[in-house]
């Protein structure tokens, strides 16, 4: 049931127009961070206000919304954001990746391939990939203008010199269509290959930092690397203990105080769907109604 005290999808129309203009410019210049007049939202900054504003600007009444945090639909903040849109936009929601038309995510890209009928909205804490190398916005803006990305390569190379590997495991920087270096939000670098050539529209919202950026469908996105140290997406050493999947991103769960642990898919819908199809992992059990 929609809460009629608020406008459709909470935001007033003028705010939505401002957001929509910013989204279109972000689409027109892939990977460039468009400043926008982020509003205070009824959830705190840093808790997905950018993603919520972008989703609110895009939602239609006939959408089917999925919200995930860490890949899971039932994490508390995902539940909270999903309830917010149920209440203010009255949209249908789903946990099924394949059934969703709009997916808001924090820190993951779903395992199931996305389609042309979907929009993936990322919550972004720090949109500026150069921020931890140069804290000043006035400087980083100049670096993007001049394509001065040497500092980023120096940082990655210093990692190699010290550790033998690039020591960035999430929020791994990418270059978009050979022009802008972009922060893909804190997704594990395991997810980076899914950014490129994706049939869905990918939108990134950073509320506190007042930036929106985008990847149109089928945009070429390359993870930064070196000829002698090519980018390698991380890969788990295990299969999922519940569904047996051997190529998904896994959460490590500590199950006792003796060092016992198990590995389960971080994408809960992916794991559930596989188990429903009869896949069983090392510690899994066949799906029954009561477990589901």
């Amino acid at each position: 049931m929609t809460d009629t005290a608020y406008n459709f999808a909470y935001l007033d129309e003028q705010t939505k127009r401002m957001l929509r203009r910013a989204i279109l410019k972000a689409i027109a210049v892939p990977g460039y961070q468009v400043p926008f007049a982020s509003r205070e939202m009824p959830m705190p900054y840093g808790w997905g206000t950018g993603g919520v504003q972008v989703t609110a600007a895009c939602l239609c009444p006939d959408d089917r919304l999925k919200v995930i945090d860490q890949g899971a639909d039932d994490t508390t903040n995902a539940v909270s954001i999903r309830k917010f849109f149920q209440r203010t936009a009255g949209v249908a929601t789903t946990e099924r990746t394949a059934e969703a038309t709009v997916i808001q995510t924090r820190h993951r890209i779903p395992e199931a391939p996305l389609t042309e009928d979907q929009i993936l909205v990322y919550q972004v804490p720090i949109p500026e990939p150069l921020r931890f190398l140069e804290p000043r916005e006035t400087e980083t803006r100049k670096m993007h203008e001049l394509e001065e990305y040497g500092l980023m390569h120096v940082k990655l190379y210093e990692d190699i010199a010290r550790h033998g590997h690039i020591a960035t495991s999430y929020a791994y920087p990418v270059k978009v269509e050979g022009r802008y270096v972009m922060d893909p939000s804190p997704i594990p670098k395991f997810d980076n290959p899914k950014l490129s050539d994706c049939p869905a529209i990918q939108l990134f919202g950073a509320g506190r930092e007042q930036r929106i950026y985008a990847l149109p469908p089928y945009t070429q996105v390359v993870s930064l690397d070196f000829e002698d140290h090519p980018f390698v997406a991380s890969r788990a050493q295990h299969d999922c203990d519940l569904c047996g999947a051997d190529g998904s991103y896994l959460d490590e769960v500590i199950i006792d105080d003796l060092g016992g642990r198990m590995f389960v898919c971080s994408d809960t819908d992916f794991c559930t769907t596989r188990r429903e199809l009869g896949h069983i992992g090392r510690l899994g059990a066949p799906m029954t109604d009561e477990v589901a």
Partner: peptide, 10 residues
């Protein structure tokens, strides 16, 4: 907006 977004994105 969704139509315009689709047009601009594709």
């Amino acid at each position: 907006f969704r139509s315009i977004l689709q047009a601009m994105a594709r």
